[in-house]
Computed example of a mutant assay.
Amino acid sequence: MPEVKHIKIGEDKFKITEEEIARRELKVTKIGDEVIQVQEEVHGIIAVVGAVSSVNIKKDELKELIKVVKEEFGWTDIC
């Protein structure tokens, strides 16, 4: 079984309260030859999990995502 490689393409911190800072990481993982997974992890706050999921991605993170899928995952037809 091939090793699963998670590649971090972005991170930042933001203030929740005077005392608490949350940390966010955005990672991409190759699931198969035609499928990737973009995962956003937020640490430091309590979140309610629902049926809807979304990932916030910044412009520079999108550029990094495109670079990673080309260079690391071999997707040559991404522009």
Rank of each mutant, 00 (worst) to 15 (best):
H6C: 14
H6W: 14
H6F: 14
K8P: 02
K8C: 15
K8R: 15
I9N: 01
I9G: 01
G10N: 07
G10Q: 10
G10D: 06
G10I: 10
E11F: 11
E11V: 09
E11Q: 15
E11G: 11
E11P: 05
D12E: 04
K13T: 14
K13I: 08
F14N: 02
F14R: 02
F14Y: 11
K15Y: 05
K15F: 03
K15N: 08
K15D: 02
I16H: 03
I16E: 05
T17P: 11
E18D: 07
E19K: 13
E20H: 12
I21L: 12
A22M: 10
A22V: 05
R23M: 09
R23P: 00
R23W: 07
R23S: 13
R24P: 08
E25S: 12
E25H: 08
E25T: 09
L26W: 00
L26S: 00
V28S: 00
T29C: 09
T29I: 09
K30W: 08
K30S: 00
I31L: 13
I31H: 10
I31V: 15
I31Q: 11
I31W: 08
G32F: 03
G32L: 01
D33V: 04
E34C: 05
E34P: 01
V35N: 04
I36K: 01
I36V: 14
Q37Y: 08
Q37E: 08
V38A: 11
V38P: 01
V38I: 15
Q39D: 13
Q39M: 05
Q39I: 11
E40Y: 13
E40Q: 15
E41Y: 12
V42P: 00
V42R: 05
V42S: 09
H43F: 13
H43D: 15
H43V: 14
G44Y: 08
I45A: 11
I46N: 11
A47I: 12
A47D: 07
A47L: 14
A47H: 12
V48M: 06
V48H: 13
V49E: 13
V49L: 10
G50C: 05
A51E: 15
V52K: 15
S53A: 14
S53N: 14
S54D: 04
S54E: 06
V55L: 09
V55R: 09
N56L: 08
I57L: 10
I57T: 06
K58Y: 14
K59G: 11
K59R: 09
K59Q: 10
K59I: 07
D60R: 14
D60L: 13
E61D: 09
E61C: 06
E61S: 02
E61T: 04
L62P: 01
L62M: 12
K63A: 13
E64N: 14
L65T: 02
I66T: 03
I66L: 07
K67R: 15
V68L: 11
V68P: 04
V68R: 01
V68N: 02
V69Q: 04
V69A: 04
K70G: 00
K70I: 03
E71V: 07
E71S: 10
E72K: 11
E72I: 03
E72W: 10
E72S: 11
F73A: 01
G74P: 05
W75M: 05
T76W: 02
T76Q: 10
